[in-house]
């Protein structure tokens, strides 16, 4: 049986891979996907704590799962808005590579 630290380590590694993508990739769509990976890593820790620390009734703690539900819903809204912004960006700049977006550079 995997223990709590197994799940926490795996979630941390998933977060680290997502962070690598956000820092290293220059395609803004891939950066966005890696942000989703980081959100999912947080979801994994929430579910793990909900399962390993049961509530007073002996069932998995429902509050952790509710938070996962809300995170997933907000992530869906965030993806819709973010992709619309990327499309608007592409329309005005003809690029989605972060190193070519240098308007704010002094």
């Amino acid at each position: 049986m995997p223990s709590l630290n197994h799940y926490l380590l795996v979630a941390g590694l998933l977060f680290a891979i997502g962070l690598t993508g956000v820092v290293l990739r220059r395609n803004i769509i891939v950066v966005f996907m890696c942000l989703e990976l980081m959100l999912s890593a947080a979801n994994l820790t929430l579910i793990a704590f909900s399962r390993f620390y049961p509530g007073a009734n002996g069932l998995p703690d429902i509050h952790g799962q509710m938070l996962v539900f809300f995170v997933v819903t907000v992530a869906a809204a965030e993806v819709a808005v973010g992709l619309a912004i990327i499309v608007a960006l592409y329309r005005t700049r003809q690029t989605i590579y972060t190193d070519e977006l240098t308007t704010l550079k002094g």
């Binding site: 799940y7 909900s50 399962r51 998995p60 539900f69 993806v79 819709a80 992709l83």
Partner: peptide, 22 residues
């Protein structure tokens, strides 16, 4: 981890809806 609902919405919302958008 017995979080069946979270697993299902992970597939439906992420692998289904969000990936289609991407």
């Amino acid at each position: 981890m017995n979080a069946y609902f979270a697993g299902i919405i992970q597939i439906l919302v992420y692998a289904g809806a969000i990936m289609v958008l991407f």
